[in-house]
């Protein structure tokens, strides 16, 4: 993090499954560059021996007992689906 961050926007947009227009690419590159530059200062903080905080108030072993409860009727489950057939959700062909 000491050197200037390099954001490979194309690669990251692919990972995030976001198609960006050329204009968005240019704008985001500039804006995120500034944000990343700002973020650089975190490198100055001495975090030696500091535990990361994942939860503000951690507790452990939060679970439910294994008792099945009714779920959604299939019509309700698929009510918001953009495309469906025979109670299955239809998507364009998945290519490996």
């Amino acid at each position: 993090m000491s050197s200037a961050p390099h954001l490979d926007l194309d690669h990251v947009a692919k990972l995030a499954r976001l198609a960006l227009t050329a204009a968005e690419q240019a704008e985001f590159s500039r804006q995120l560059g500034e944000v990343l530059h700002h973020i650089e200062q975190l490198a100055k903080v001495d975090v030696t021996g500091v535990e990361p905080t994942a939860h503000a108030f951690p507790v452990v072993n939060v679970w439910g007992e294994d008792v099945a409860r009714p779920g959604l009727p299939v019509e309700a489950a698929l009510r918001n689906a953009p495309a469906q057939r025979d109670h299955l959700i239809v998507v364009p062909k998945v290519v490996e």
């Binding site: 993090m1 990251v12 975190l42 490198a43 975090v47 500091v50 535990e51 990361p52 905080t53 994942a54």
Partner: peptide, 19 residues
């Protein structure tokens, strides 16, 4: 979060969060 940046950003931020 991407490969090679996690420690420098996310993990470090979680530690600074502790501070």
């Amino acid at each position: 979060l991407s490969s090679g940046y996690y420690d420098a950003y996310y993990l470090r931020a979680q530690k600074v969060r502790t501070l």
